[in-house]
Design a binder for these strands. Structure first.
Lengths: 118, 118
DNA sequence: TTCTGTGGTATATAATAGTAACCTAGGTTA
DNA sequence: TAACCTAGGTTACTATTATATACCACAGAA
């Protein structure tokens, strides 16, 4: 991560440790930085939440978005999906330990964000 | 932020404290979560960096992207743009105190991200 | 004259986000 | 019985963003 740029005697430049592939920051952002992803994780912090309850809590995000994000999060093992009953079909989503490990970052982000609004 | 869902006697649902507009998490993400935004801020942490040096450090991001992100960051007063000399034109970008205040979040993100790679 | 450097801009296309309507199913209301 | 509520999505379409590529003017060096 310690990128730096060197200039040789002829003025030519070389980069040391360029982030040729996405570096850690960028990778992290791609895990929790997608649109609505952070919000979804944060709203799951107190326990399992049902799909439509999530869509209600995140007014502004469409079902499609939420569905897409939930699938992404599930494929990364950050949340698990549970079908509770089959007749009046009910599904809940819950954070895994890995998903939970991102919460403190989101909470700092929230605190920082709130302190900027004044 | 404490959204919850209530069900009345007839099974109808109401949401309490829905995030009708982007909530704090989402707002924060829009400040530092844009593609490459976090990386740019992070690469400025050690002092002013020139435009082309940034593009070299962030291999993978196009000049246009970086240019766009720098302008966004400048308009939010997270970075400042300085023209150093006019003849061989040179420009540097530097974090403001506000921009700097986001660094600790990014650093936690980096640590978290690195610990996930195994 | 062709190479490097500076800080960008323009154009085109690919990927992603967002909107609204619709689906199967069951239950309730009137 | 129709009409409307719930559930958890899917589909089709449009709008916005990201990416790649080429290009601009200007300067210095071989």
């Amino acid at each position: 991560m310690e990128s730096s740029v060197e200039t040789d005697s002829k003025g030519r430049k070389k980069v040391l440790n360029a982030c040729m592939e996405p570096c850690a920051i960028e990778k992290g952002m791609r895990l929790i930085g997608g649109k609505w992803t952070g919000s979804i994780i944060y709203h799951l912090k107190d326990g399992p939440v049902r799909f439509n309850d999530l869509t209600r809590m995140l007014g502004g995000a469409s079902k499609k978005m939420i569905d897409q994000r939930l699938k992404e999060l599930e494929s990364r093992a950050m949340i698990t999906r549970h079908v509770i009953s089959t007749r009046p079909i009910a599904v809940t989503y819950e954070l895994t330990d890995f998903g939970r490990s991102a919460l403190h970052i989101l909470d700092e982000l929230r605190v920082w964000s709130e302190s900027n609004e004044v």
